[in-house]
Design a protein around this nucleic acid. Sequence first.
RNA 1: GUGGAUAUAGCUCAACUCGGUAGAGCACCUGAUUGUGGUUCAGGUUGUUGCGGGUUCAAAUCCCGUUAUCCACCCCA
Length: 421
Amino acid sequence: MSSANQPVQGMSDIAVPEVRLWQRIERLAREVLARYGFEELRTPVVEFESVFTRSLGETTDVVQKEMYVFEKGGRRLCLRPEGTAGVMRHAAGLGAAETDGARWYYIGPMFRSERPQAGRKRQFHQCGVECMEPPSPLVDAEILALQVDLLRAWGLEDCEVRLNTRGEGGGHAKVAEGLRAALAPRQAELCEDCRRRISENVLRVLDCKNEACQAIVATLPPPTDFMSEASRTYLAQVASHLDLLGVKYRVDPLLVRGLDYYEHTVWEIASMALGAQNAVAGGGRYRMQLGGRELAGVGFAIGLERVVGVLQALGLDAKMMELPPPLVWLVGLGGDAMKQNLALMQQLRAAGLACRMAPDGSMKSQMRAANKSGAAWAIIRGDDELARGVVALKDMVSGAQETLPLDRLVTHLAGKLAPKL
RNA sequence: GUGGAUAUAGCUCAACUCGGUAGAGCACCUGAUUGUGGUUCAGGUUGUUGCGGGUUCAAAUCCCGUUAUCCACCCCA
């Protein structure tokens, strides 16, 4: 309870039983991702600060106030606040032959120094993908479908997909100018935050929660009006591919994604089961300059804390937890039996069985420990069994107990185990 | 970064308003069976009341600070 044994603010231990849910989530993710031809890429948690400042955008909140930055050996380093930039940094070091058509996924911790809240940790975990195939509405739709598929595999059914376009990368300034011009006459009516946003990040005015701002936004021409014809066509094609794939979505012209590297398709997936931080996942197409190379791809990230939050809110968490293998507990009476059990335990483990024993204690307390551990069987040996070369094997669920020769123990247990697998 | 709430046994919480050296349930340990758990019964252990300071004869209780947690803003996954 004292502060000495608490983790750093906004960071938490993931322990039994919750960690079993995380294990299942990760295992299911790897299975689904493999079906789409993705392979894992493990990039370092620590990167040069410039990897993110250049790609996410100097003015984004993530870069300006949320990164954990530190200096080491005269270099500006940071803990990664997201996954895409690191993957692209990896790609920038490869030749085009290796990156063209690459499909990578990652699962791991990210760090943002925000005020902790429901569904918002300073160390949080994302599962994401990056697909470097040539830009195409078809690929964008496939990747979005993959994300929905993943969420469904985890049991998240009640999610809403909102789809939008940011338009071609070259047209961003034009969109911003258009919006600023349209907002200028109404500026005085906007909330304090939005007046600031007009100059800093005008797109953010679109998704302001303030009612007065929303009323003004409703009168604006949609941002797509300021985009190229090609941009609008691209979005329409993504939408039609999604229809073909049976993915439900809602086109939301007001959907905004914060990071600068996005262009064309962007989307966000929210769950009604969560509170204010209800965005479970987001994604989109992007383009960035890194290491002298221009890199383009489409990808997404899913916030695993939020996935866990939804599963807990829906009451699905207990069912989904990864179960440890059936356990055999060795109970020994007397020093000789304890030593013999220690040796036997290693033999059983070598044969593939999960085993534990208590180092001492009365038979009663050893049995209690076996019960508490959830052991499927107890192997009981005292002087009598040692002398006869047998063990007593007790089924902890039924309570039935049998005596069998030591040399038949492994095959006997393996036979009992088989139907359970 | 801003605002509100909270912090008491391993867990969930009571006692705080009206200061008098902390209590329940669950959990845990021992025994009822000198070699048998999970049910039952009997008995038992558990806390520097988040941390630091102040007021007071006396502070879990009142005051200040601090740290953390929760909720919302902001931002995002």
